[in-house]
Design a protein around this nucleic acid. Structure first.
Length: 411
DNA sequence: TCTGGGGTCCTAGGACCC
DNA sequence: TCTGGGGTCCTAGGACCC
């Protein structure tokens, strides 16, 4: 058996830990540039605000009632780390799945004791971090997701915040029969629509479907969901300690811009951040993709989007004008471990001394930025009032990672 | 004025091989 | 009328996740 532990309304809960007056009120956390609502308190959900709702399309009434905060990723990342630490007290097997969810192994535990352990886990996380979580136990990941969902929403479980689903219990059957297939982990709109055409509407219908037939019509991914619904764990999670295969850094701009200086500055900033991520996982890259695009929501403006892949021997700069760009980013492709780095044919080998200097310079830059805050050392200084700087007008202090911001709260 | 960012896996189809 | 068969590798794009 395993548990899926999911933090309730995570970003909002983080904000509430440090500002308890937010309890019981409709609170939302916004995406970058204060663009969309990406986390909602139950009270905000009750007002009918959907996940991903565009901020500027919210009714004046909602905006008056709700407290909408810019996202504070330094805070959420740090709180996430603390929650994960507590989970480690309950099991040696913790797989971090996302910033607010982890699978926790309970292999070999007496199933009759699980609910009790779940309640203890919940209470401990709440006491040590202030974050409320829900716990779903099941023999497979897909069922654990269903159990977790029930622990949050279902009248029979939400009081406790814990739900256990055995593969063949009556409870499991009842729950799956109520659950629209599209609410399953791994089934979204496209697949859901095609399943409905085949007469498969609930999670129970999918569980009873013929796995081989599902594979023929869809893919091995969907087939695995059928086995998982039957309680057979067949989905493996990627080992989070494995290095990433691609690294992307991209941001929408604070305002639209066609100024080549803006584009260059933004890309330089993104490249620096991507390099940091790359070095952190000990990889090197041999190809960089750079992309820019206009705002596709603006039907009134000419649209343009393009990307160029640059092989690193011959880096080029490509800048165009005449469009109002909304977003730029870059992706490091074709990553490999630093240790295996191969010389390409015709490449002039770097001398040992040069390699050494470059290595220690980058290590120093990373260290300073890590310890003194991002942006302490930058490659080239951005101009004032640039169009690409993020808008973030309602961010709370970074309570757990910046002393100076904590002081402003105390005073 | 104004609509997020960062990933993964799988499949289909083309290029190429013998 | 009629143009092999079987394989690998790579890439683009779809679908999905939070």
């Amino acid at each position: 058996m395993m548990a899926l532990v999911d933090c309730n309304n995570f970003y909002v809960s983080c904000e509430r830990v440090f500002n308890p007056t937010l309890e019981g009120r409709p609170v939302g956390v916004l995406s970058n540039n204060d663009g969309c609502v990406v986390a909602r308190s139950n009270e905000l959900k009750a007002l009918g605000v959907e996940m991903g709702a565009a901020m500027h399309l919210l009714s004046p009434q909602i905006r008056r009632q709700a407290i909408l905060l810019s996202s504070n990723y330094a805070l959420y990342g740090d709180m996430s780390r603390r929650v994960t630490e507590v989970l480690g007290e309950f099991s040696p097997h913790v797989e971090v799945y996302s910033i607010d969810e982890s699978f926790v192994g309970f292999q070999g535990c007496d199933p009759d004791t699980l609910e009790q352990q779940g309640r203890a886990l919940r209470a401990t996380v709440k006491q040590w971090t202030g974050i409320p979580v829900s716990v779903g136990f099941a023999p497979s990941r897909v069922l654990a997701k269903v159990a977790n969902h029930a622990a949050k929403k279902h009248p029979a479980y939400r009081e406790q915040g814990v739900c256990k689903l055995m593969a063949d219990s009556i409870d499991t059957q009842a729950l799956l029969k109520q659950l629209p297939v599209m609410e399953l982990w791994g089934v979204a709109r496209r697949t859901g629509e095609r399943l409905r055409v085949m007469g498969i509407e609930t999670a129970w219908d999918l569980r009873m479907a013929n796995p081989k037939q599902i594979r023929r019509h869809f893919s091995v991914v969907q087939e695995r969901i059928v086995w998982e619904l039957r309680g057979q764990p067949v989905i493996q999670l990627d080992d989070m300690s494995e290095p990433k295969q691609q690294i992307m850094v991209s941001r929408s701009f604070g305002r639209l811009t066609g100024n080549p200086h803006d584009l260059r500055e933004a890309l330089r900033q993104h490249a620096a951040r991507a390099g940091e991520k790359l070095r952190k996982q000990g990889s090197v890259t041999s190809a960089v993709m750079v992309f820019i695009r206009t705002n596709h929501f603006r039907n009134d403006l000419p649209q343009y989007t393009n990307r160029v892949v640059i092989s690193l021997e011959r880096p080029t700069n490509d800048s165009r004008e005449g469009y109002a760009y909304q977003k730029a980013g870059l992706m490091l492709l074709d990553l490999s471990p630093k240790a295996n780095r191969q010389l390409t044919l015709g490449e002039t080998p770097q001398t040992e001394a040069d390699a050494q200097r470059s290595e220690s310079l980058m290590a120093t830059v990373d260290k300073l930025n890590r310890e003194l805050g991002r942006g302490t050392i930058q490659m080239g200084l951005p101009r004032k009032g640039n169009a690409w700087a993020l808008r973030s007008e309602r961010r709370t202090p970074r309570y757990t990672t910046q002393w100076n911001e904590l002081m402003t709260v105390v005073l």
